[in-house]
Computed example of a mutant assay.
Amino acid sequence: MNVQLIAYTQLSDSFKKQIQSDIQFEYNERAAIALTAIRTCYSPNPPSEILSLEGNKYFGNKATDGKSGTEADRLFRHITGSGHSSTLEHLNYTFAIEGVSRALMGQLTRHRHLSFSIQSQRYVRFGSEDRSGGFAYVTPPSVEKNKDVVVNYNDFGDTETVGEIYETLMKRLQSGYDDLRKGGVTAEDCRSILPNAATTNIVLTGNLRTLLEFYNKRKPGKGAQYEITELAEGIKSKIIEVDEWLTAYFEEK
Protein backbone atom coordinates (compact mmCIF):
# COMPACT_ATOMS: atom_id res chain seq x y z
CA MET A 1 0.00 0.00 0.00
CA ASN A 2 1.18 3.48 -0.86
CA VAL A 3 -0.61 6.54 0.56
CA GLN A 4 0.37 10.03 -0.59
CA LEU A 5 -1.21 13.38 0.26
CA ILE A 6 -1.47 15.16 -3.10
CA ALA A 7 -3.57 18.23 -2.26
CA TYR A 8 -5.10 20.14 0.63
CA THR A 9 -7.02 23.35 1.33
CA GLN A 10 -4.99 26.55 1.20
CA LEU A 11 -5.61 30.27 1.42
CA SER A 12 -5.88 31.97 -1.94
CA ASP A 13 -2.96 34.14 -3.06
CA SER A 14 -5.20 37.20 -3.29
CA PHE A 15 -6.45 36.73 0.28
CA LYS A 16 -2.92 36.24 1.64
CA LYS A 17 -1.88 39.52 0.01
CA GLN A 18 -4.92 41.20 1.54
CA ILE A 19 -4.03 40.19 5.11
CA GLN A 20 -0.22 40.18 4.98
CA SER A 21 0.21 43.71 6.34
CA ASP A 22 -1.99 42.94 9.35
CA ILE A 23 -0.50 39.58 10.30
CA GLN A 24 2.14 39.65 13.05
CA PHE A 25 2.18 35.94 13.82
CA GLU A 26 3.10 32.62 12.28
CA TYR A 27 0.13 30.53 11.28
CA ASN A 28 -0.79 27.30 9.56
CA GLU A 29 -3.14 27.97 6.63
CA ARG A 30 -5.62 25.23 7.54
CA ALA A 31 -5.67 26.50 11.14
CA ALA A 32 -6.29 30.02 9.84
CA ILE A 33 -9.24 28.78 7.80
CA ALA A 34 -10.64 26.89 10.79
CA LEU A 35 -10.31 30.00 12.95
CA THR A 36 -12.12 32.07 10.33
CA ALA A 37 -14.98 29.55 10.19
CA ILE A 38 -15.30 29.29 13.97
CA ARG A 39 -15.15 33.01 14.68
CA THR A 40 -17.61 33.75 11.88
CA CYS A 41 -20.25 32.06 14.03
CA TYR A 42 -19.56 34.30 17.05
CA SER A 43 -17.90 37.48 15.81
CA PRO A 44 -19.46 40.74 14.58
CA ASN A 45 -16.55 41.02 12.12
CA PRO A 46 -17.00 39.85 8.51
CA PRO A 47 -15.20 36.59 7.62
CA SER A 48 -12.79 38.36 5.26
CA GLU A 49 -11.49 40.52 8.13
CA ILE A 50 -11.35 38.02 10.99
CA LEU A 51 -7.70 37.05 10.51
CA SER A 52 -6.65 40.67 10.18
CA LEU A 53 -8.65 41.83 13.21
CA GLU A 54 -8.52 38.79 15.49
CA GLY A 55 -5.63 36.64 14.25
CA ASN A 56 -2.98 38.25 16.46
CA LYS A 57 -5.08 37.60 19.55
CA TYR A 58 -5.57 33.92 18.81
CA PHE A 59 -2.32 32.91 17.11
CA GLY A 60 -0.06 35.34 18.98
CA ASN A 61 -0.88 34.31 22.56
CA LYS A 62 -0.44 31.14 24.57
CA ALA A 63 -3.48 29.03 25.41
CA THR A 64 -5.30 30.30 28.50
CA ASP A 65 -6.71 26.89 29.44
CA GLY A 66 -3.35 25.71 30.77
CA LYS A 67 -2.85 23.32 27.87
CA SER A 68 -0.40 23.41 24.98
CA GLY A 69 -0.43 25.67 21.96
CA THR A 70 -1.94 29.06 21.31
CA GLU A 71 -5.26 30.67 22.05
CA ALA A 72 -6.31 29.37 18.62
CA ASP A 73 -5.60 25.82 19.81
CA ARG A 74 -7.64 26.48 22.95
CA LEU A 75 -10.51 27.74 20.82
CA PHE A 76 -10.32 24.68 18.55
CA ARG A 77 -10.40 22.38 21.58
CA HIS A 78 -13.36 24.22 23.08
CA ILE A 79 -15.43 24.34 19.90
CA THR A 80 -14.87 20.74 18.79
CA GLY A 81 -15.26 19.53 22.36
CA SER A 82 -18.71 21.11 22.45
CA GLY A 83 -19.69 19.23 19.29
CA HIS A 84 -19.33 22.11 16.83
CA SER A 85 -17.11 20.08 14.51
CA SER A 86 -18.89 21.25 11.36
CA THR A 87 -16.33 24.05 11.26
CA LEU A 88 -13.71 21.44 10.34
CA GLU A 89 -15.57 20.60 7.14
CA HIS A 90 -13.92 23.56 5.40
CA LEU A 91 -10.57 21.73 5.39
CA ASN A 92 -10.15 19.15 2.62
CA TYR A 93 -7.39 16.65 1.90
CA THR A 94 -6.87 14.57 -1.24
CA PHE A 95 -4.88 11.32 -1.25
CA ALA A 96 -3.44 9.00 -3.88
CA ILE A 97 -3.97 5.46 -2.55
CA GLU A 98 -2.20 2.74 -4.50
CA GLY A 99 -2.08 -1.04 -4.37
CA VAL A 100 -5.07 -1.71 -2.10
CA SER A 101 -7.51 -4.56 -2.51
CA ARG A 102 -10.98 -4.33 -4.01
CA ALA A 103 -12.18 -5.65 -0.64
CA LEU A 104 -10.86 -2.50 1.02
CA MET A 105 -12.58 -0.40 -1.63
CA GLY A 106 -15.89 -1.98 -0.65
CA GLN A 107 -15.28 -1.12 3.00
CA LEU A 108 -14.46 2.48 2.12
CA THR A 109 -17.83 3.00 0.46
CA ARG A 110 -19.51 2.45 3.82
CA HIS A 111 -18.16 5.83 4.93
CA ARG A 112 -20.23 8.86 3.97
CA HIS A 113 -19.00 12.18 2.58
CA LEU A 114 -15.81 10.79 1.07
CA SER A 115 -15.21 11.28 -2.66
CA PHE A 116 -13.61 8.53 -4.77
CA SER A 117 -12.09 8.08 -8.21
CA ILE A 118 -11.22 4.41 -8.65
CA GLN A 119 -9.19 2.52 -11.23
CA SER A 120 -11.68 0.77 -13.49
CA GLN A 121 -11.55 -2.96 -14.15
CA ARG A 122 -13.78 -2.27 -17.14
CA TYR A 123 -11.46 0.10 -19.00
CA VAL A 124 -8.09 -1.04 -17.64
CA ARG A 125 -7.26 -4.47 -19.05
CA PHE A 126 -5.60 -6.96 -16.74
CA GLY A 127 -4.50 -9.67 -19.15
CA SER A 128 -0.95 -10.99 -18.94
CA GLU A 129 -0.23 -9.48 -22.37
CA ASP A 130 -1.75 -6.09 -21.55
CA ARG A 131 0.18 -3.04 -20.37
CA SER A 132 -0.80 -3.89 -16.78
CA GLY A 133 1.02 -7.22 -17.06
CA GLY A 134 -1.91 -8.91 -15.32
CA PHE A 135 -3.64 -8.18 -12.04
CA ALA A 136 -1.67 -7.70 -8.84
CA TYR A 137 -3.14 -8.96 -5.58
CA VAL A 138 -2.91 -8.51 -1.83
CA THR A 139 -1.91 -11.40 0.43
CA PRO A 140 -3.66 -11.13 3.84
CA PRO A 141 -1.54 -11.53 7.00
CA SER A 142 -3.40 -14.69 8.05
CA VAL A 143 -2.44 -16.33 4.74
CA GLU A 144 1.16 -15.20 5.16
CA LYS A 145 1.23 -16.39 8.78
CA ASN A 146 -0.08 -19.85 7.85
CA LYS A 147 1.62 -20.18 4.47
CA ASP A 148 3.55 -23.29 5.50
CA VAL A 149 0.57 -25.11 7.02
CA VAL A 150 -0.09 -28.31 5.06
CA VAL A 151 -3.65 -29.05 3.88
CA ASN A 152 -4.99 -32.38 2.58
CA TYR A 153 -7.16 -31.65 -0.43
CA ASN A 154 -8.36 -35.08 -1.62
CA ASP A 155 -8.84 -38.71 -0.53
CA PHE A 156 -5.47 -39.75 -1.98
CA GLY A 157 -3.45 -37.85 0.62
CA ASP A 158 -2.27 -35.14 -1.75
CA THR A 159 -1.27 -31.99 0.08
CA GLU A 160 -0.48 -28.35 -0.51
CA THR A 161 0.53 -25.58 1.82
CA VAL A 162 -1.76 -22.62 2.48
CA GLY A 163 0.69 -20.40 0.60
CA GLU A 164 0.67 -22.71 -2.41
CA ILE A 165 -3.13 -22.87 -2.46
CA TYR A 166 -3.44 -19.10 -2.39
CA GLU A 167 -0.85 -18.46 -5.09
CA THR A 168 -2.24 -21.26 -7.28
CA LEU A 169 -5.73 -19.77 -7.10
CA MET A 170 -4.43 -16.36 -8.13
CA LYS A 171 -2.53 -17.86 -11.05
CA ARG A 172 -5.57 -19.87 -12.16
CA LEU A 173 -7.72 -16.76 -12.12
CA GLN A 174 -5.14 -14.90 -14.19
CA SER A 175 -4.97 -17.78 -16.64
CA GLY A 176 -8.77 -17.93 -16.81
CA TYR A 177 -8.94 -14.17 -17.48
CA ASP A 178 -6.38 -14.53 -20.29
CA ASP A 179 -8.19 -17.50 -21.83
CA LEU A 180 -11.56 -15.75 -21.75
CA ARG A 181 -10.03 -12.75 -23.48
CA LYS A 182 -8.59 -15.03 -26.17
CA GLY A 183 -12.07 -16.50 -26.59
CA GLY A 184 -13.53 -13.10 -27.39
CA VAL A 185 -14.91 -12.16 -24.00
CA THR A 186 -14.61 -8.42 -23.36
CA ALA A 187 -12.42 -7.05 -20.58
CA GLU A 188 -15.46 -5.61 -18.82
CA ASP A 189 -16.94 -9.12 -18.60
CA CYS A 190 -13.66 -10.86 -17.80
CA ARG A 191 -13.43 -8.76 -14.66
CA SER A 192 -16.24 -10.91 -13.23
CA ILE A 193 -13.69 -13.54 -12.22
CA LEU A 194 -11.17 -11.18 -10.62
CA PRO A 195 -10.94 -11.69 -6.83
CA ASN A 196 -11.47 -9.30 -3.92
CA ALA A 197 -7.71 -9.54 -3.43
CA ALA A 198 -7.04 -7.86 -6.79
CA THR A 199 -5.46 -4.46 -6.24
CA THR A 200 -6.78 -1.10 -7.35
CA ASN A 201 -5.76 2.57 -7.17
CA ILE A 202 -7.91 5.29 -5.64
CA VAL A 203 -7.94 9.07 -5.41
CA LEU A 204 -9.79 9.94 -2.21
CA THR A 205 -10.89 13.35 -0.95
CA GLY A 206 -12.51 14.11 2.37
CA ASN A 207 -13.05 17.03 4.71
CA LEU A 208 -11.33 16.93 8.08
CA ARG A 209 -14.46 16.12 10.05
CA THR A 210 -15.19 13.10 7.85
CA LEU A 211 -11.58 11.90 7.92
CA LEU A 212 -11.48 12.11 11.71
CA GLU A 213 -14.70 10.08 11.91
CA PHE A 214 -13.23 7.55 9.47
CA TYR A 215 -10.05 7.28 11.52
CA ASN A 216 -11.94 6.86 14.79
CA LYS A 217 -13.88 3.90 13.36
CA ARG A 218 -10.97 2.21 11.59
CA LYS A 219 -7.95 2.91 13.79
CA PRO A 220 -6.09 0.12 15.64
CA GLY A 221 -8.11 -1.39 18.44
CA LYS A 222 -11.49 -0.83 16.79
CA GLY A 223 -11.74 -4.33 15.32
CA ALA A 224 -11.35 -3.22 11.70
CA GLN A 225 -9.62 -5.45 9.15
CA TYR A 226 -5.84 -4.99 8.89
CA GLU A 227 -5.77 -3.28 5.50
CA ILE A 228 -8.24 -0.49 6.21
CA THR A 229 -6.55 0.07 9.59
CA GLU A 230 -3.25 0.50 7.75
CA LEU A 231 -4.95 2.99 5.43
CA ALA A 232 -6.40 4.93 8.38
CA GLU A 233 -2.93 5.19 9.92
CA GLY A 234 -1.48 6.27 6.57
CA ILE A 235 -4.04 9.05 6.17
CA LYS A 236 -3.44 10.22 9.73
CA SER A 237 0.34 10.37 9.29
CA LYS A 238 0.12 12.31 6.02
CA ILE A 239 -2.24 14.90 7.50
CA ILE A 240 -0.08 15.37 10.59
CA GLU A 241 3.00 15.88 8.40
CA VAL A 242 1.50 19.13 7.10
CA ASP A 243 -0.80 19.94 10.04
CA GLU A 244 0.95 18.92 13.26
CA TRP A 245 -1.60 20.96 15.21
CA LEU A 246 -4.16 18.23 14.46
CA THR A 247 -2.23 15.49 16.28
CA ALA A 248 -4.44 15.73 19.36
CA TYR A 249 -7.59 15.30 17.28
CA PHE A 250 -6.41 11.90 16.05
CA GLU A 251 -5.35 10.85 19.56
CA GLU A 252 -8.79 11.41 21.05
CA LYS A 253 -10.65 8.25 22.07
Rank of each mutant, 00 (worst) to 15 (best):
H78T: 07
I79A: 09
T80Q: 10
G81P: 08
S86H: 14
E89F: 01
Y93D: 01
Y93W: 09
T94K: 14
F95Y: 10
A96Y: 09
I97L: 14
V100R: 15
S101D: 04
S101C: 06
S101Y: 05
S101R: 06
R102E: 05
A103C: 07
L104F: 05
L104Y: 06
L104C: 09
M105S: 14
M105A: 11
G106T: 06
G106L: 10
Q107I: 00
L108M: 10
L108C: 03
T109C: 10
H111C: 03
R112V: 01
F116W: 05
I118V: 11
I118S: 12
Q119V: 04
Q119M: 15
S120A: 08
R122T: 02
R125M: 00
F126N: 11
F126W: 07
G127M: 01
G127Q: 06
S132M: 11
G134C: 08
F135R: 07
F135Y: 12
F135P: 01
V138S: 09
V138Y: 09
V138C: 06
V138Q: 10
T139N: 10
P141R: 14
P141K: 15
P141C: 04
E144A: 12
K145C: 03
N146I: 01
N146E: 13
K147M: 10
D148M: 01
D148R: 03
D148S: 06
V149N: 13
N152A: 13
Y153V: 07
Y153M: 06
N154M: 05
F156I: 01
F156D: 09
G157M: 05
T159W: 02
E160M: 14
E160S: 09
V162A: 03
V162I: 11
G163H: 08
I165C: 06
Y166Q: 09
T168P: 01
T168N: 12
M170I: 08
L173M: 11
Q174A: 02
S175A: 14
S175H: 13
L180A: 09
R181S: 05
R181W: 03
R181P: 00
K182F: 00
G183T: 07
